[in-house]
């Protein structure tokens, strides 16, 4: 509870800056309107106008909050929580691609890491490619993945999940290579004195030792997955998902819609990463490694 005062102070500061910036950024449009109507604005009129425009350059927090409520809680109250106008629906679409991509990416990452640790050829050759893969801007390669997969008849969830996977496998590879190599020479010698097979060494020593590294990687991987899923939704023609909301919002200048989708994405990311953090705490505590 001692944390609550500093946290609230920071939140209050963010809101203050946000409201002030809204006034500054939206003022030209307010002045412009006033000039055309032939009236002059008092300060309070100016502020109330900049905080309630239809298509503001920067919507005020309460506008975003209202939009969020209209597209989530209120729709649930009306029993239409899963309609296409609901952010819950769009979040679900994005989440399913994120989740699938995250699982695929984690599996791929762990598999590559095992290969790198156990196979000398892979050790010497794979890492540069893994790093190179991450230097390609995801925005450039995402449409290609969608188009190519579409050409072979794969559409819907999987192409987006592939883009998620593309981003999320990287931290898992890097973390797991380090984690699987974390047992010291003494621990490996000890396994040798027992004449343990490589498989036994993997399951009983290397894999358990890598858990702290794995969870750290999973947190980064999850956030990257979400970015991947949102980017993957941009070139699909804005059908559904948070990415589609962002794109549609930018087509029609609906800044309030863009900001509420952004906040929703951030909330989703926070929840998912927090969930991994929770699992991490429980598992590592049980393993005596926390």
């Amino acid at each position: 509870m001692r944390n609550i005062v500093p946290v609230l102070t920071v939140v209050a500061a963010i809101f203050a800056i946000w409201y002030a910036a809204a006034v500054a950024l939206n003022a030209p449009w307010a002045y412009n309107k006033a000039e055309r109507a032939g009236v002059s604005l008092t300060t309070s009129e100016l502020i109330s106008d900049t905080w309630s425009q239809q298509k503001p350059k920067l919507p005020a927090p309460h506008q975003v909050g209202a939009e969020l409520w209209n597209t989530t809680g209120e729709m649930v109250a009306k029993g239409r929580g899963f309609s296409k106008r609901s952010l819950i629906y769009h979040s679900w679409v994005t989440f399913s691609a994120t989740g699938l991509g995250f699982l695929l990416g984690t599996a791929l990452g762990i598999a590559l890491a095992i290969g790198i640790v156990y196979n000398r050829t892979m050790d010497m050759s794979v890492m540069p490619w893994v790093i190179a893969s991450q230097t390609i801007p995801i925005l450039a390669i995402a449409p290609m993945i969608i188009v190519v997969l579409n050409a072979v008849g794969i559409s819907g969830l999987l192409p987006k999940a592939m883009i998620s996977m593309y981003l999320s496998f990287f931290p898992v590879v890097v973390g797991m290579v380090k984690g699987l190599r974390s047992p010291g020479p003494m621990q490996l010698d000890q396994m040798r004195t027992w004449n343990a097979t490589p498989t036994q060494t993997f399951w009983k020593l290397r894999l358990p030792s890598s858990m702290p590294y794995l969870f750290t990687s999973l947190k980064i991987g999850m956030a990257a997955s979400l970015v991947g899923a949102i980017v993957g939704e941009l070139p699909t023609g804005a059908v559904a998902g948070l990415g589609a909301r962002l794109l549609a919002g930018s087509y029609y200048g609906q800044t309030i819609q863009i900001w509420s989708a952004l906040i929703m994405a951030a909330t989703l990311a926070a929840c998912l990463v927090g969930l991994i953090g929770l699992v991490q705490r429980i598992v590592l505590k049980r393993m005596g490694m926390a």
């Binding site: 003494m186 621990q187 010698d189 000890q190 004195t193 358990p208 049980r286 393993m287 005596g288 490694m289």
Partner: peptide, 12 residues
């Protein structure tokens, strides 16, 4: 049986 300088017990 080999006993190392550190106990090297697995924490988990």
């Amino acid at each position: 049986g080999y006993v190392f300088q550190a106990a090297g017990l697995y924490p988990w």
